[in-house]
Structures are given as structure tokens and as C-alpha cells.
Computed example of a mutant assay.
Amino acid sequence: MVSIEAHSGIYTLKTEQLLNTDLETAWEFFSSPNNLVKITPKHMAFEITSGKAKAMYPGQIITYKVSPFPGIRASWVTEITHVKDREFFVDEQRFGPYSMWHHEHIFEETEKGLMMWDKVSYKLPFGVLGRMIHPVIVKNKLTQIFTYRYKILEELFPA
């Protein structure tokens, strides 16, 4: 479901999920930034601050507020850097909590349903300190977020 590997100071999170839907429906859902609220844990108080977002397009800037931990509110700015209609899109952090964040969303229609992959390559700030807190805090938090997303998508697109 969710795996995280380290390589050259960068971490890569991968997920794989088979959804009981067609490519058109899935693409419509995932290409709307407004649906991020639906698949983010409620306790994170996720809020798009750049206004109601239109369907994504390359160059689109989206700003958010999110609470990764109780009492901490962070701003996050991402850019949609690549879109290949009904195949994949990429969002990259421009400003936020990571030194680097590159998130690939990949879709493929199969006989069994829609296969969806997430691949997030990220780097933490603060050098050695960042690497020390990764296994204790960051890895667990990201696993929790993507496990929640998996569960919600199972409910939105039931078998």
C-alpha cells in the first residue's frame, strides 16, 4: 500500500491502488484541486487559500494552509508542472515545509479497473536533523496521510 525508501538524501514514497472506476471519472476527480480536501485527514484542517481552483493545467499555482500537527499551521505553495491528459500529472512544492517535493500521479485503465500510482520524491530541510526526525515523525505522518487517502478512495469508488 504505502512504501518509503531513502536514496542519496531523498526519500521516495510510493502507493498503488486499484479503483473501481473508469479513467474518465477518476481523471475528473483527481484533476480538480478542490477534491484534495476530501482525501486529506480532517484533523489536518486542509484549506485551499488561492480560491476555488479550476481543473489543473501546467503552470497552475495553488496555495494551501495545512495543520500537520495540532496547533501548527503551515502555508504550502505548489505548482502543477506537467499534465498528460488522462495519463499523469505532477505537482511540485514551490514554498512549504520540504526542501523538495515532487509528486507524480499516474493513471492506467486495466481490465480490473483503474490502476493509480503515487510517487512522491521529497527531501527534508535541516540536514542531519531532518534525517533524524524522518523515521520518527515525517515517515509516520506521510504513511498515515496516504493510508487515509487509500481508505477514502476505497469508499468513493467502492468495489
Rank of each mutant, 00 (worst) to 15 (best):
M1K: 06
M1S: 13
I4D: 13
I4N: 13
E5H: 07
E5M: 10
A6N: 13
S8V: 03
G9E: 08
I10P: 00
Y11T: 01
Y11E: 04
Y11G: 02
T12R: 13
K14Y: 07
T15A: 04
N20I: 02
E24L: 03
F30P: 03
S31N: 09
P33A: 11
N34C: 13
N34R: 12
N35W: 01
N35Y: 00
L36M: 15
V37Q: 15
T40Q: 09
T40K: 10
H43V: 05
M44C: 09
E47L: 08
G51C: 10
G51T: 03
K54P: 01
A55S: 07
A55D: 12
M56F: 11
Q60V: 04
I61C: 01
I61N: 05
K65P: 05
V66Q: 07
F69Q: 05
P70R: 08
G71I: 15
G71A: 06
G71V: 03
R73V: 14
R73F: 06
S75C: 08
E79C: 08
I80D: 00
H82M: 04
H82N: 10
K84F: 04
E87R: 10
F88G: 01
F89V: 02
V90F: 04
V90L: 13
V90Y: 09
D91N: 14
F95L: 15
G96P: 03
G96W: 00
Y98P: 09
S99D: 14
W101L: 11
W101H: 01
H102S: 07
H103E: 12
E104M: 10
H105L: 14
I106D: 11
F107I: 10
E108K: 11
L114E: 06
M116C: 15
D118H: 07
D118K: 05
D118W: 06
V120S: 01
V120F: 00
S121L: 06
S121M: 06
Y122N: 07
Y122K: 02
P125F: 01
P125Y: 00
P125D: 10
G127F: 00
G127M: 04
V128H: 11
M132E: 09
I133G: 07
H134A: 04
I137E: 08
L142D: 14
Q144E: 14
F146M: 13
Y150L: 10
Y150G: 02
K151M: 13
K151A: 14
L153A: 05
E155F: 01
E155M: 12
L156Y: 05
F157Y: 10
A159E: 13
